[in-house]
Each structure stands twice: as structure tokens, then as C-alpha cells.
Design a protein around this nucleic acid. Structure first.
Length: 234
DNA sequence: AACTACTGCAACCGCTACTTG
DNA sequence: TCAAGTAGCGGTTGCAGTAGT
């Protein structure tokens, strides 16, 4: 058998946190540190779910949080990172010290989305709104399937008419990469996660795959086109 | 002043990968 | 090995504050 449930939902508070609850949580974490969210509410004398405590601390109470408006630089960085990573808010937040994934997600949905739309850019694809979305197709002529970004019909797309992977995180197609199109095994070059400064991240593909990547300098970031096997199609 | 519509954000929900017993 | 719990993530919702009429 596993462990006992994380909390008794019948005896937990919900909704907005009170000042007293905040103070208790902050005092407890200052004394004991982060971690073991399951036992924290009881130990801290809070009628809250551990999950709720974790969220409150991470998104609101952490002392290193930067409150206030986003700067123009942060704006641009979020847009660049989103074009590369998609809705990976925690990864994006990792590149913005003092900002949380929830804060960035909210800011994206309320400000940046609108900003991009007003510029005629699709916030989901980072392409012009009037440009038809690319239809990825997969070729099996190599040892491994290769995703190509093309609207033209291929024999494969005819063979697999229902296969639409909705792949959107690669940078726009670039005929002439700024750097030598160095398509090598990852063992010899960085994956996108490492390139963005997230070594040892769970999304890092360096250590455990034989993925091929091509590196570009997209939007000023040393970006990477991933082999389709690394893409998440959520 | 009162009502309605809109906006922004904190918090919740549900899912998944990982861990534990 | 596997079932169940935990932590963390992303999507969604609820509500307070503000603007418009």
C-alpha cells in the first residue's frame, strides 16, 4: 500500500489567504525551510492543503519575489522564450529571476497575447495571423522519421492524412542558419534546455537520448531545432 | 449613485512523472 | 513489480477592483 492522503479536504480552508495564515506559513518556512508540503500544514497549524501552502509560498510569499510591473526587457524575453518553449511557464520563469510561473502565465494571457495580436502575430505560433499554420509531415525515407515544416503535399502526408502533430515550438523556418547547420548527435552539442541555461533539467535531452539537433541563432537566442521525439504534443 | 461589463490576478483543479512502501 | 501518494505543472475559474454608461 502507499501512503496516507495528503490532506483531509473536509477540514481544509479554501479561497483567499488571511494575513494570519500567511504569517504562520512564512514563520514555519523560515524556521524549518521549504519541503515536505504534506506535513507542513499540520506542523504549521494551518487548515490548508499542502498543495495550497506550496502555491501560496511560491507565488506570493517567497522573499525573493520581484513584485510590480514587468519591464520591456522582461516582456521581450518572455516572448522569445515562449516562441521557443511554448507554454512551459516554469522553464520561462526560470530565466526571469523573481518571477513565478503563475505570474508569467497570467501576464502572458492578459497582456502579451493582446500585444502580439495587435501586432498581427498569432501568440500561439508566433507567426503572422494571416499566414496559414505549417502542416508538419513526417518522412520515413531515413532511419528515423523526419518532421518537415511544409505546406506542400508529401507522399507521407497522403499516406497518413490524419497525422497532425501540431508541432509549434521550433523557430520559424530558416534556409540559412546563422551558424553552420551543425546537425550532430546531442552528445556533442547542447540541447535546447541546456542552451537556455537549464542543465540537469528533466526536459534536458542531452543525457538520455540520441536526438539530433540543429542550432540557430533565433531572435538573438542560441536556439535549437529539436528532433520530433523531444517535442511534447500536449 | 447604481448598475453592468471588463480586467487582472490569486487560487483551485486535474493531470502527469516520479517516489515510496 | 505495482498500487498509491507526492510534487509540480499548466489550464481554468472566481472574485475584487475599475471603467464605462
Amino acid at each position: 500500500m502507499g501512503r496516507s492522503p495528503c490532506c483531509e479536504k473536509a477540514h481544509t480552508n479554501k479561497g483567499a489567504w488571511t494575513k494570519e495564515e500567511d504569517d504562520r506559513l512564512v514563520a514555519y518556512i523560515r524556521a524549518h525551510g521549504e519541503g515536505c508540503w504534506r506535513s507542513l500544514p499540520k506542523a504549521a497549524g494551518l487548515l490548508r492543503c499542502g498543495k495550497s501552502c506550496r502555491l501560496r509560498w511560491i507565488n506570493y510569499l517567497r522573499p525573493d519575489l520581484k513584485r510590480g510591473n514587468f519591464t520591456q526587457e522582461e516582456d521581450e524575453l518572455i516572448i522569445k522564450l515562449h516562441s521557443l518553449l511554448g507554454n512551459k511557464w516554469s522553464l520561462i520563469a526560470g530565466r526571469l529571476p523573481g518571477r513565478t510561473d503563475n505570474e508569467i502565465k497570467n501576464y502572458w494571457n492578459t497582456h502579451i497575447r493582446r500585444k502580439l495580436l495587435s501586432r498581427g502575430i498569432d501568440p500561439a505560433t508566433h507567426r503572422p495571423l494571416n499566414e496559414p499554420p505549417p502542416t508538419p509531415s513526417i518522412s520515413f525515407k531515413h532511419d528515423h522519421p523526419v518532421v518537415s515544416d511544409s505546406n506542400s503535399k508529401s507522399p507521407t502526408s497522403e499516406r497518413c492524412p490524419d497525422l497532425n502533430l501540431e508541432l509549434t515550438i521550433s523557430p520559424p523556418h530558416h534556409d540559412h542558419p546563422l551558424h553552420t547547420p551543425n546537425t550532430t548527435a546531442v552528445n556533442n552539442s547542447a540541447c535546447v534546455v541546456c542552451t537556455l541555461g537549464f542543465p540537469d533539467n528533466k526536459d534536458c535531452s542531452c543525457a538520455n537520448t540520441s536526438t539530433t539537433v540543429t542550432r540557430y541563432d533565433f531572435l538573438g537566442l542560441k536556439s535549437t531545432v529539436l528532433d520530433y521525439r523531444n517535442l511534447e504534443t500536449k
